[in-house]
Design a binder for these strands. Structure first.
Lengths: 225, 225
DNA sequence: TTTAAAATATGATATTTGTCATGTTTTAAT
DNA sequence: ATTAAAACATGACAAATATCATATTTTAAA
């Protein structure tokens, strides 16, 4: 079993605020797990008795709406924590977490996290800052979804994915989402997302190779209304 | 100047986690202010060097979108704190706060809050829980705006306002919003909000008296699609 | 490899929502 | 009480988006 003290990933989340002793304690009771692409880590309503630390891979956080469609709220990546909101709110999961590619995930029991939150003010302040950041992002998403056109939001997602995941050697976005995932991020029908991506292709803003997408004209993409 | 130790309002927010000594310290350096309906408490981009505690009244938190329309993210009411996200995130305000009716607001300087966040784990944990709750609400708003129809969202807002603000002696919602505010909450054009409320009136779901709105048929309102 | 299933694509059309114009009512200042 | 401004209301129409149908392509399992 790998050791938290030596794990580089914790530098990217609130666990970096823990002391060596605290890390050792956590390390001794954490578990680790491989999650295959498409696998569910937890579902809306599940009781999550701890926090996940993403060692590798990406997953989507989504929620099923009454109309039967999933809305993707957030992509959670290597280095992020997962499940902290439910844990702190003392309630079952509000969102589902599903792997978008193969992942490696550690699990830290609730009791350990709660203990450190009470004993280590640096840790809880860091957690608070991270939560404040997430809240800002969600508030901004509300404004975007409420006020921008679907076309504009699809363009935004492409720019976001480029900025956060980068591109491979051939210039294709390093993360491959299905058209349905694109639709569920921007909050539209799958056909609409497909149509808009096709239009972007015709207009030379992007090119595609199966699922893969390459941004061809950033400037124009940023100017999409 | 009134005293925080004796202020009933703090029971409704994280300040309840402070000790008598901490409250005395905060009380000695807080300021108090009357805010008239329509007045701006702070604007997007402002540096807020502290936290507001709402002693009375209601304000809206909104953000201007590139299309020139305001999106209302949240209503902040008596007992709530205001500005804590910006303070904790160490950044300027992401949203504007504007009074919806006459308010009484206390202001606690940043240094005091930060001091207590570092010294009192109960306080920071409570703040964290409040922030976790706000995040859940925002995530749910994303799903609703992305997936429900405008009509559905208008119905939801009416039900929400009833649940959170109640009604007066005659059965009218205790809080009076302009049609534009309704539009900016659900993320639609003002005319669309007006049209939908008119339709609800015709269908007997609500009745109106000028700005005032009375819910006449809850069951039907909840079933609006 | 073959083949069935899933994902992508696109047309036709319906529905929802936005925009612009214009009139009416309400509100608040004089 | 009068009046101007703001808010509310509604029609006509345009634009955006969803839905349904049906190919085509890609993916993954046998």
């Amino acid at each position: 079993m790998s050791k938290c003290e030596q794990c580089i990933v914790r530098q990217f989340n609130s666990l970096k605020a823990l002391s060596k002793e605290e890390l050792l304690r956590i390390s001794s009771c954490k578990t680790s797990r491989i999650v295959k692409k498409g696998e569910v880590i937890f579902e809306e309503g599940d009781t999550i008795n701890g926090v996940f630390c993403i060692k590798d891979g990406v997953c989507k956080l989504s929620k099923l709406s009454p109309n039967g469609k999933d809305q993707i709220i957030k992509l959670v990546v290597k280095g992020d924590l997962l499940g902290q909101r439910s844990l702190i709110g003392e309630e079952s999961a509000n969102l589902s977490a599903i792997a978008l590619n193969d992942m490696e995930v550690c699990f830290i029991p609730k009791s350990e996290i709660m203990y450190d939150l009470q004993k280590n003010p640096k840790f809880s302040l860091d957690m608070l800052q991270q939560m404040a950041h997430d809240l800002k992002e969600s508030d901004n998403t509300i404004v975007n979804i409420a006020q921008k056109s679907v076309k504009n939001r699809v363009a935004d997602v492409l720019i976001y994915l480029n900025a956060h995941f980068g591109v491979d050697q051939k210039g294709y976005l390093s993360i491959n989402l299905s058209r349905e995932d694109y639709a569920n991020i921007v909050g539209t029908a799958t056909e609409s997302a497909i149509r808009i991506l096709s239009q972007f292709k015709k207009d030379g803003l992007i090119s595609t190779q199966g699922k893969q997408i390459k941004i061809e004209d950033f400037k124009k993409l940023e100017r999409v209304v």
